[in-house]
Amino acid sequence: MRILIVDDEIIIRALLLDVLKSDGHEVDAVGNGYDALKLAKKNDYDIIFSDVHMPEMNGYELLTQIKSHHPQMAVVMMDSYPEELSERCMRDGAFHCVHKPFDISELRKVIKSIEDKKHSGDVS
């Protein structure tokens, strides 16, 4: 799977890079929304993991932009504010929401379900 990580926190980017690469995915990581949009335009990602609270462009804006340009792309939002996140992400078309701090198994589960859906041709 081709995965893009968007988070201003280095530790989260590093963790996701280490874990997902060792799982055999093709992973890119950026620190802000603009870089994410650039990469998304260039590469055809299967999944984008994005943080919500980021400088300059926050996760919601990124989600909206990605969805308008790449409606087929699965976007998974990550944040520390559970209730706020779930509501808004799902409304704006996120595939799933992950609450920080998360277990890496949870991430794997999400990736697995996207993989499954992709194979069945039902990814939104």
Binding site: E9, S22, D79, S80, Y81, K100, P101, I104
Partner: peptide
């Protein structure tokens, strides 16, 4: 709320890496 966010990032890192 801010503190939660602030704490959750390093904790996320710690949790993730230790699980890894």
């Amino acid at each position: 709320a801010g503190v939660a966010h602030e704490l959750n990032n390093p904790i996320g890192g710690i949790l993730g890496y230790s699980q890894f």
